[in-house]
Design a protein around this nucleic acid. Structure first.
Length: 1100
RNA sequence: GGGCGGGUAGCUCAGUUGGCUAGAGCAUUCGCUUUACACGCGAAGGGUCCAGGGUUCGAGUCCCUGCCUGCCCA
């Protein structure tokens, strides 16, 4: 960004003349200059040696690394502001503070963006470019965005340790990935398996559930007739089953058909092309037809494959059996009028996906199931192309294999075309579908089924087509419909007790659900030490682990960490032998004739890989899921597994800062990232790390994996809100409702943005940010940030005033009388109260309270009352000068973590002022470069808190407020000095002075005023005001009457309330005595005020 | 389907173990170049705390039911 406006003379660093600061705080005049000072002083560079030498306690945050896919949005601004507040406050509190910075390579997201760019700008695909050149393109893209993101963070004022910035694919992180993979592989926790995955046929990769979204599409249910056969011996030819035969078997409704014709069952499907991969037909055992079909088979049309009829209570019973038996389509029209999906759309939630942990409940027909209306009671079973069928197929492996078929028959190529090259060989007459893409194949299947009939009859194979609207999984990145697809993938066995269950055991006991809290599960380091703020998110975390499945970590992408496994069919014996002898360098597994070798990245990897290559091994072409490297982030960024191999500056980092203190993130990340970091660190880091890490060379000597008993990556997890736009929608590029932090910084300043974001951060889970387009710049901004901008300006002007009062002369720095005046003691008491509130808020991650406390302290207490009150006395009162200076400096320090720039800019000036210290307030000087960001956190003695002083001041303040009300009501011009009539001794001289200053009172008199005076009360003190206007004009009795009547009505109302409470017999009996006393006092006061107002009304 | 939020002034939101006559900022109205600040100062108006039950001397707050709304997971 350009900082075009010339810095004003007064703001040019420490040399400028005091008191000549410009009237308004202009962020652009200061931010860049101050940032340069921070950089130059290396103010944010953490020194682990200070921790290891015992000079300071550690405080550490690792940044949730932003994806290099795009520039940062306002959600990132919030996330990073909150981290910076923690980092800066703890740094000032004396902790050696490390905020680790970095970015994430975001595999599929980045690859998809670059692929789109490539297509758009050069009109080519990545395949046309080739892997190496494509990866170079992505690398260049990453460099571009990493810089943008880093600049954004710096402009926001983030106090990261920029010298230690990492990237999830840099060599340090890559070493950690290799090592983690190797250890998990060696321990049998990484395995290769053929599984159904979410396949994106466009990007041709597996994608995770969270990389998919559901969208309703208009589709159809197709009803296919499968001819029934029987076959006693698999070697014999199958024979048709006739309706007569079925009737003899007691099949209900069989007699309605022509007895000599071949019988059939009708299956319903939305994806008819998958019938090529059918390996069974299933029926619910409760279905009355099941009995008659037992032992029979179905012959798949065209393919000719003979498949069994299975009984499984997963199968949905049809809504109406009568209709389903004969499957008479026309009768359904009345069942589902507007059958174009009207019924299902009322239940448009995604259908259950038959997860292994939660399969279909099997409780028979479910009337609410929208599918029941469409069901025939016969389910085509395609285990290789449907997750539910997959589970079903596994339950009936024997029956399926008895027919001579594999359970899993894959009929698609990776690009989504029908193919007989991927596990399907009994093509038969179905060759006419081979080579067609999914959609075309579907059409063709329907055409063929419609055109063909069952043997020896006129009944067509296609029974009916009905429109159906339903929810279908799509790929986030390509928008293609996801195909459940069978493929070879790498998995982490997170269901192992040492991974997910170990992560669950990390929760603090009080945040666990009951069945989890049994004591015997707890024991190791890291158990029971993980705490969520707000606590409710612990439940999300726990439930995620309870239902977890093994984690598919391979992605068929080019951008990412390449799977460090080499494999080959029928490896030569000398290779097998060599590999067996070098177990430190390589770990081998054999599946059938395939040999897999996982190479250890730390031991001479290049040489081993070369050797493998010579024997004919090839490296796996897949890359790892991005979260695999993210899961290592807290340790990889600090040089794990071997800081010595990382470049200089890593010594002692892990020992000093791991476990880190707090992770600060948004809630959707709990499952994706938080859990995986806990699992990996507890598995990979040594078990006794926390107790023995300070021993020399701890990492090497404790070289064993924690096996789920290791330390935590962090102790606290703070989950913050998600920012929505003014209408409660997610901010997104496509809606154009997003906000770029740099636009906010340009319009309002970084501090304004940060203050507003903090002020919005309550314990709720969503916050709204109304967005407006600035007509001048065309950029999005929000009036919400005015709050922060005004506040920064207020601080600036309070400082300006202070400078003008104290800057002109030098002041004694010692030997001054203790401040004794009411206003000074009040100010110090307010400061002490606010300081402890701020400390508490920071401890509990209560950002809104922190911001609000500072707002009230600076604006309400310091500016509105203190500064106004001291105007007449500050020039001559040296004690007061000390209070003024110290209070301002305390405010600067307390506010610095939220508003680093303006406080640093003001501090440049304020630190030049000399003044005596205030007893009870300790302000440690800056540690680096004279900068506020390295200065000590204010230590304010609790004894400065004086409730009695605050009460006295409150009384005075309400008197002043009543006088102001009377003035406003009577239209007294602001400049006019009036006279206050109170009995002798009511106000001491300092109180009297405050009233005169703050309420525009000229003189205070004990005499009774003449006509035209106005009577009023405050806290039961009766007083009169005179001299409201020139002698000639009378007081406005109408306005006064109105004011008094309203006052009386208000008091009457509260009297009624309070009397009602006291007259309630239960109240006196059961309420605490102090409460009753308080109510009595209130009642007395209200009555006195009412009476005073009545008396005033009477004289009017 | 499971889980977690939210519903308080025109708008955006506070309101900690139940206890002052429910608060703030913005917006609105009136007045003001009052020796820091109009991005300001002083004053004012504005609320059936979603609805209905219950517990209690006392409920915005705790319990139950319902309605509306958002998010996460499957």
């Amino acid at each position: 960004m350009t900082e075009s406006s010339k810095p004003s003379s007064g703001a040019q660093g420490s040399g400028g003349p005091i008191g000549e600061l410009p009237k308004q705080y202009k962020p652009a005049d200061h931010e860049q200059r101050i940032r340069a000072q921070w950089d130059e002083a290396k103010a944010f560079h953490a020194d682990p040696q200070r921790v290891l030498r015992g000079e300071a306690k550690p405080y550490c945050i690792v940044i949730p690394p932003p994806n290099v896919t795009d520039r940062l949005h306002l959600g990132h601004a919030l996330n990073n502001t909150l981290q910076d507040v923690l980092a800066r406050s703890h740094r000032m509190m004396g902790f050696e503070t490390l905020w680790m910075a970095g970015t994430d390579h975001a595999g599929i997201a980045t690859q998809a963006v670059v692929e789109r760019r490539l297509k758009k700008e050069e009109g080519i695909t990545r395949q046309q470019l080739g892997r190496e050149k494509f990866v170079a393109k992505v690398q260049a893209f990453k460099d571009e965005y990493e810089k943008i993101i880093t600049d954004q963070l710096k402009l926001m004022g983030c106090s990261c340790d920029w010298d230690r910035q990492r990237f999830t694919m840099d060599e340090v992180c890559a070493r950690a990935v290799r090592e983690a993979f190797f250890r998990l592989f060696k321990d049998g926790l990484i395995y290769r398996g053929k599984r159904l995955v979410n396949w994106d046929p466009v990007l041709q990769t597996a994608v995770a559930d969270d990389e998919c979204y559901d969208e309703e599409i208009d589709s159809s249910f197709y009803y296919l007739r499968y001819p029934l056969v029987h076959r006693d011996d698999p070697k014999e030819d199958a024979q048709p089953v006739t309706w007569n035969e079925l009737a003899r078997r007691g099949y209900p409704g069989a007699e309605k058909h022509r007895g000599e014709e071949q019988a059939w069952v009708t299956v319903a499907t939305t994806r008819p092309e998958t019938y090529l991969g059918d390996t069974a037909v299933a029926v619910n055992p409760k279905d009355p037809r099941a009995n008659g079909l037992r032992g029979l088979f179905v012959e798949l049309p065209l393919v000719g494959r003979i498949i069994p009829i299975l009984e499984d209570d997963y199968v949905v019973l049809p809504a109406s059996l009568e209709n389903a038996i004969d499957f008479a389509p026309r009768e359904h029209a009345s069942d589902a009028p507007a059958s174009a999906g009207a019924a299902p759309s009322a239940h448009h939630r995604p259908e259950p996906r038959g997860r292994s942990g939660a399969p279909h409940t099997g409780e028979g027909s479910e009337p609410e199931d929208p599918k029941a209306k469409y069901a025939t009671g016969f389910l085509k079973v395609t285990p290789a192309h449907d997750p539910n069928d997959y589970e079903l197929g596994l339950r009936h492996t024997a029956a399926i294999e008895a027919c001579g078929n594999a359970v899993l028959i894959n009929m698609l190529a990776p690009d989504g075309t029908v193919s007989d090259k991927h596990g399907w060989s009994d093509v038969g007459d179905a060759h006419l579908f081979v080579g067609l893409p999914r959609e075309k194949a579907r059409k063709k299947v329907i055409e063929e089924f419609a055109a063909r009939t069952l043997a020896g009859s006129s009944t067509t194979l296609l029974a009916e087509t009905r429109p159906y609207r339903h929810s279908v999984k799509h790929s986030d990145r390509s928008k293609a419909i996801i195909e459940p697809y069978l493929s070879d993938q790498w998995y982490v066995k997170v269901t192992d007790d040492r991974l997910a269950p170990a992560a669950n055991r990390a929760l603090v006991a009080e945040q666990r659900s009951k069945q989890q809290s049994s004591k015997q599960q707890i024991g190791a380091d890291g158990d029971g030490e993980l705490r969520f703020y707000p606590a409710r998110y612990a439940k999300t975390y726990e439930q995620w682990h309870d239902g977890i499945r093994d984690w598919c970590i391979s992605r068929q992408l080019w951008w990412g960490h390449r799977v460090p496994v080499w494999s080959m069919e029928n490896a030569p014996p000398e290779a097998i032998q060599w590999l067996g002898l070098n177990r430190d360098s390589v770990c081998v597994r054999t599946i059938g004739t395939l040999t897999f070798a996982c190479v250890n990245g730390l031991y001479n990897a290049a040489a081993v890989e070369k050797r493998l290559h010579t024997w004919g091994f090839g490296q796996d072409t897949d890359v790892l899921d991005t979260w695999f490297s993210s899961a290592l982030w807290p340790i990889s960024t600090m040089g794990w597994p071997n800081p010595q191999l990382a470049s200089k500056g890593f010594e002692g980092l892990l020992q000093a800062f791991n476990p880190t203190t707090t992770l600060c993130t948004a809630r959707e990340i709990i499952t994706l990232w938080v859990s995986r970091m806990v699992m990996f660190e507890r598995y990979l880091m040594p078990e006794r790390w926390e107790t023995e890490k300070t021993k020399p060379n701890a990492l090497a000597s404790l070289d064993e994996n924690g096996q789920g008993r290791g330390p935590l990556p962090f102790k606290n997890v703070f989950i913050h809100a998600v920012i929505q736009d003014g209408e409660g929608r997610k901010m997104s590029k496509s809606l154009g409702n997003g906000l770029d932090p740099l636009d906010i910084i340009a319009s309002h300043g970084s501090d304004a943005m940060r203050f507003t974001l903090c002020q919005m951060t309550t314990q709720t889970q969503d916050v709204r940010m109304p967005m407006v387009k600035d007509p001048a710049t065309g950029r999005n901004t929000s009036p919400k940030f005015d709050l922060g901008r005004n506040f920064a300006n207020k601080l600036w002007n309070a400082a300006r005033f202070t400078m003008s009062m104290l800057g002109a002369t030098s002041h004694p720095t010692s030997d001054i009388p203790h401040p004794t005046s009411l206003i000074d003691r009040w100010m110090l008491s307010r400061l002490a109260t606010a300081t402890s509130e701020v400390n508490e808020a920071i401890t509990n991650f209560e950002y809104s309270n922190y911001a609000q406390t500072m707002y009230d302290l600076l604006w309400r207490d310091f500016c509105d009352w203190y500064l106004e009150a001291i105007k007449p006395t500050i020039a001559s009162d040296v004690s007061q000068q000390a209070v003024l200076r110290t209070t301002l400096e305390c405010i600067l320090r307390l506010l610095h973590p939220i508003m680093p720039y303006v406080t640093e800019a003001v501090y440049e000036q304020v630190k030049l002022l000399s003044a005596a210290p205030i007893p009870g307030i300790a302000l440690a000087p800056p540690r680096k470069g004279g900068l506020l960001c390295t200065a000590g956190w204010p230590q304010v003695a609790p004894s400065l808190r004086q409730p009695a002083v605050e009460t006295d001041f409150e009384r005075l303040r309400s008197l002043i407020t009543v006088i102001r009300e009377v003035r406003a009501q009577h239209g007294v011009v602001p400049k006019r000095r009036i006279t206050l009539h109170v009995p002798v001794g009511t106000l001491d001289s300092s109180a009297a002075a405050l009233v005169q200053t703050l309420a525009g009172v000229e003189s205070i008199s004990a005499e009774t005023p003449g006509a035209g005076a106005v009577a009023a009360t405050s806290d039961a003190l009766k007083f009169q005001l005179s001299n409201l206007r020139d002698a000639a004009s009378a007081a406005d009795s109408g306005a006064e009457r109105e004011r008094l009547q309203k006052l009386i009505a208000d008091h009457e109302k509260s009297i009624a309330t309070l009397e009602g409470r006291l007259n309630n017999p239960g109240y006196a009996q059961k309420a605490p005595p102090a409460m009753v006393k308080q109510t009595q006092d209130q009642l007395a006061k209200a009555k006195a005020e009412r009476d005073a107002a009545k008396a005033a009304l009477a004289v009017l």
